[in-house]
């Protein structure tokens, strides 16, 4: 495991921070973050970030599917024939997505309708496939769970940050509660599709600036 630059591993302190699991987790959460590190899974990051509630539900759905999918693949890695592994991944992830989609339809019907096809599109989300192919297929279960949690929470962190600024500027609210005074008109640009691109571009710019400063 390479010691990533800028990763502050305390010499003294909690033992948790020095374990391999933690390094793998931080790797997915920050250094190889799906959105700004590897530029994967942008479709949903752009589409569902207009409201924080949508982004939260979407992030939770992705985290659950990613962790369960990676775990199943890690357990079955000696059983899955190498030549048909892609098809095996797809069948597993489709089954999980059907389950999660039905649960969302039951428990949060309004948000499920707002998310539209984007929950089903988790099937073709590059993050799920990428983690399965790059990590789960040749690593033990424990490490795989840390890796999937790191990548999933990294995705969630990016989505929630973008959604925070898009909802605040586009609607003047957070989780549906109005926070800016009624007399101020929100900048509707950030609630429509072009605003999503601007928000994502700016987010990547800021994160890269922070990463560069920390690397120095």
């Amino acid at each position: 495991m390479k010691e990533a630059a800028g990763l502050k591993v305390p010499q003294k302190g909690y033992r948790l921070f020095k374990t391999k699991n933690w390094t793998v987790f931080v790797e997915g959460l920050w250094h190889n973050n799906p959105i700004f590190g590897m530029i994967l899974g942008l479709c949903s990051a752009l589409a569902v970030t207009n409201l924080m509630a949508n982004a939260l539900v979407m992030s939770l759905a992705v985290i659950v599917i990613l962790v369960v999918n990676s775990t199943i693949i890690s357990i079955l890695k000696s059983v899955i024939p190498e030549r048909v592994r892609m098809i095996a991944y797809m069948l597993i992830v489709s089954t999980l997505v059907i389950t999660v989609d039905l649960m969302l339809k039951i428990f949060v019907p309004d948000i499920s309708r707002a998310l539209g096809p984007y929950v089903a599109l988790i099937i073709t989300n590059c993050i799920i496939m990428g983690r399965a192919e790059a990590f789960a297929i040749n690593n033990p279960v424990g490490l795989t769970v840390s890796d999937a949690l790191g990548a999933g929470m990294g995705y969630g962190f990016s989505l929630m940050t973008i959604a925070f600024f898009r909802e605040l500027t586009g609607f003047g609210s957070l989780f549906g509660f109005r926070v800016i005074p009624e007399s101020m008109t929100p900048a509707a640009l950030f609630s429509i599709p072009p605003g999503a691109f601007f928000a994502l571009g700016t987010f990547i710019l800021i994160i890269n600036a922070i990463r560069r400063r920390r690397a120095q």
Binding site: P193, G195, A196, F197, L200, G201, T202, I204, L205, N208
Partner: peptide
Amino acid sequence: ENFGAAGITAILAGIMALAFI
């Protein structure tokens, strides 16, 4: 420089999306 390839593509796509909309 901090935009990177992905960031500047997102900004370009945003400007283009405005035109299409």
